[in-house]
Simulated scan of single mutants.
Amino acid sequence: MTRIGIITGSTRDVRVNLQVAEWVKDFADNKDINAEFEIVDIKESGLGRFNEAIPPLMTNKEYATEEQSIWSRKIDSFDGFIFVTPEYNKNFPSALKDHLDYLGEEWHHKAAGIVSYGSTLGIAASLALRTTLSNLKVATVEPQGAFSLFNDFENMATFKPMEVHKPRFGEMIDDVVAWSTALKSVRKEKSFA
């Protein structure tokens, strides 16, 4: 079965990020699709700011802390991802960037979808995240979830997405699962190279 990690993008105490991730998981779990979805909350990872002497972790696993090793195994266990990111200053949060930077090959040859939100739907954050993910050899699907703080949140605090998003969001889930399943063969071929 194809495993998809739903990765939160914020660690702030006042975040709405986890609400969005939980909605994504519930939506995905209710689709008739051959995949397993799991929320991966970066706030619970135990990792701090990325401040390693030799990036990424794949080059110095023997020096990894317990938290880094756990993060490595967790990400390696997935076939694909859905990143849930807010937009801060036209970019995705530094906490998410740090969590991406801790690893290397664990991300390679997997697929991802992006769910963004903000005052302008988080579009700038999603574009920045796509660039970073491409450098990590992650193939991002075109359909994405993009939510407005003004229309999809009650008082900018409680996530209540409009129904209009569901068809496009369903396409994103389908594409993430299809691409993630297909890329398993690429990873298998690379492991024998």
Rank of each mutant, 00 (worst) to 15 (best):
I7A: 09
G9R: 08
S10V: 05
R15N: 04
L18E: 08
A21S: 12
E22I: 09
W23M: 04
V24S: 08
D29K: 06
D32Q: 14
D32K: 13
I33M: 02
E36H: 10
F37I: 08
F37A: 11
E44V: 09
S45G: 11
L47Y: 01
R49K: 13
A53R: 13
L57K: 02
N60I: 14
K61L: 15
A64C: 06
E66P: 03
E67I: 03
E67Y: 06
S69V: 08
I70S: 05
I70K: 14
S72T: 04
K74W: 02
D76E: 15
F83H: 01
K90N: 13
S94N: 11
K97H: 08
H99E: 02
Y102P: 01
Y102H: 00
E105G: 14
E106M: 06
H109N: 14
K110H: 05
K110Y: 00
S116L: 02
Y117F: 12
S119T: 10
T120D: 13
G122T: 07
A125L: 05
R130F: 12
R130M: 11
L136H: 10
V138S: 08
T140H: 01
T140R: 00
T140N: 05
V141W: 01
V141I: 12
V141D: 04
E142G: 12
E142V: 15
G145N: 03
S148A: 07
L149H: 00
N151K: 13
E154P: 00
N155H: 10
F159H: 04
K160D: 02
P161I: 04
P161S: 08
P161A: 09
F169D: 06
F169G: 07
V176Y: 01
A178V: 07
A178D: 08
L183K: 07
K184F: 01
V186E: 11
R187D: 03
K188D: 14
E189F: 12
A193T: 13
A193F: 11
